[in-house]
Design a protein around this nucleic acid. Structure first.
Lengths: 130, 130
DNA sequence: CCGCATCCGCCATGATACTG
DNA sequence: CAGTATCATGGCGGATGCGG
């Protein structure tokens, strides 16, 4: 493996009980990544976010938002009015993470034709797995 | 089996049925990300990878490797010898993805002190979650 | 309108044992 | 060494109902 002077940082995430692995999961998880990217485009209210991220349930949205807020990725702002209004926006750190994620997603999306081709060939060589 | 429309025209990860969302999950998932980064350092054999990615079970390693191979992220090379020898290495696409992931992980790890601080403050304001 | 709480099914994950 | 098969389970995640 490559020689790295700051080995403690790099080897970190490979350790099973390192907290960075949990944070990474919150950020890259099924809904976390989509929420961060959405908030990278614009600030959103709860309902708007729910509509933007297609398929997410209220429960998961609420839960994921709490995790991301706890990790300091976003800020939740409550306006004490009727009807209630709650807005979410990224922190500076959250914005950096969102940018990285955006790059990753662009990469994946741009190469989806190749991915689908690889999948088709794989399925052809192996026996048509569901 | 939601495959009637042509999804390749516009890959939108925000759409619930878009295959790019699945691929993204394979790549950013709990084990997928770590495996890709490991293979970004060097080629590995099955057992080596198992030892490198701390905490992964044989089952999950095998399964994740198959998913990533199917998506065209890595190549599995079987050497017909005794004892068996199987090597894994990234495709060009896999390498690009691994680089993006590495950037994301570096960002997270470099900011873990801030994250932990945010968590502590969050736990203090809200009632000490388990 | 914004969410939290509860119930519950189901899948991802892990442990173990077995095969080539 | 490199997996596959089987079983058990914890938690993810959806549906619903309530509270502010």
């Amino acid at each position: 493996m490559p020689d790295s002077s700051d080995q403690s940082l790099e080897a970190d995430v490979f350790a099973r009980d390192c907290s960075s692995r949990t944070t990474l999961q919150n950020v890259t998880g099924r809904w976390g990544s989509l929420i961060l990217i959405a908030l990278g485009e614009s600030n959103y209210r709860f309902g708007e976010l729910r509509r933007r991220v297609d398929g997410v349930s209220e429960r998961m949205l609420s839960q994921t938002l709490q995790n991301l807020e706890r990790d300091g990725m976003l800020v939740r702002t409550v306006h004490e009015v009727i009807p209630p209004k709650v807005e979410y926006h990224l922190t500076p750190l959250g914005r950096q993470v969102a940018n990285q994620l955006q790059g990753l997603i662009d990469l994946v999306q741009d190469n989806m034709p190749a991915v689908r081709e690889a999948q088709a060939e794989y399925d052809a060589r192996h026996g048509e797995r569901a």
